[in-house]
Simulated scan of single mutants.
Amino acid sequence: MTQDGPIEKEQLVYFKIGGIIRKYRKEKDMKLLDLSAITGIGSAMLSKIENGRMIPTIPTLFTIIQKLGISPEVFFSQLNADNKFPGYYFLPKDQFTAYEKEEGAKGFEYFSILEHSMETGGAFQISILQLKPGASRPLVTTSAYEFIYVLKGKVDYMLEDKSFEMTEGDALFFDGNIAHVPLNRSRQTVSLLVFYLFTDARS
């Protein structure tokens, strides 16, 4: 994410951006294609922004919130966070937050453990993904590096034309710009630990 003005990137929780945009879009009963038409931003890019798979540049973000009729002050007040690291975080599992990553995805349940913007630039997000039997979605890309660790079950992880059979304890690290999707071919729910690392160079 580029800096263009007095907004200090280390004071913003990047991963709230997409959810806030989606909330305002739905409140106005707009589809992605409607927002694309008035902003001039492709619907595919808007989808990636809303799904947290891409952090928009400041000019792109300002275009979106302007066309949605949101004042910058109101929008950014929802992103502000005390980002001074106290030295530790205790994260009780009952405080993990469910969120939607892709609209229309079947059997993908995400729970955010920790979202943090770093003083040195960039940000990371740690989530749990519960993958139901028969879960499905198209291949996607993410403007981040991703680390996957299998907590429970077996999964086939697709990276374009490659497939990795993963069982409990296996891990996978990859460039999220490679199209990817996990496939649960079993009859049991699979649990994955997912780590996203966003860096300024990839925003």
Results as ranks from 00 to 15, higher is better:
63 T>R: 10
45 M>K: 02
76 F>T: 13
65 I>R: 00
77 S>P: 13
82 D>S: 15
52 G>C: 01
71 S>C: 09
40 G>W: 04
39 T>W: 06
58 I>M: 15
43 S>V: 01
43 S>Q: 14
78 Q>W: 03
34 D>T: 00
38 I>H: 02
66 Q>H: 08
71 S>P: 09
35 L>F: 00
39 T>R: 01
69 G>C: 10
82 D>N: 15
49 I>W: 11
46 L>W: 00
50 E>P: 00
71 S>R: 11
58 I>T: 15
67 K>S: 11
79 L>Y: 04
83 N>C: 14
82 D>R: 14
81 A>E: 13
49 I>N: 07
78 Q>D: 08
61 L>G: 00
81 A>F: 13
39 T>S: 09
34 D>C: 02
42 G>I: 05
36 S>G: 10
61 L>S: 08
41 I>H: 06
49 I>K: 11
43 S>L: 08
64 I>P: 04
57 T>L: 06
32 L>V: 05
60 T>A: 12
85 F>V: 07
60 T>V: 15
69 G>S: 05
31 K>A: 13
63 T>W: 10
60 T>F: 05
80 N>A: 14
44 A>Y: 04
74 V>G: 01
56 P>T: 10
34 D>V: 04
68 L>K: 01
36 S>Y: 09
31 K>H: 04
59 P>D: 06
58 I>C: 11
37 A>D: 02
84 K>E: 11
71 S>D: 12
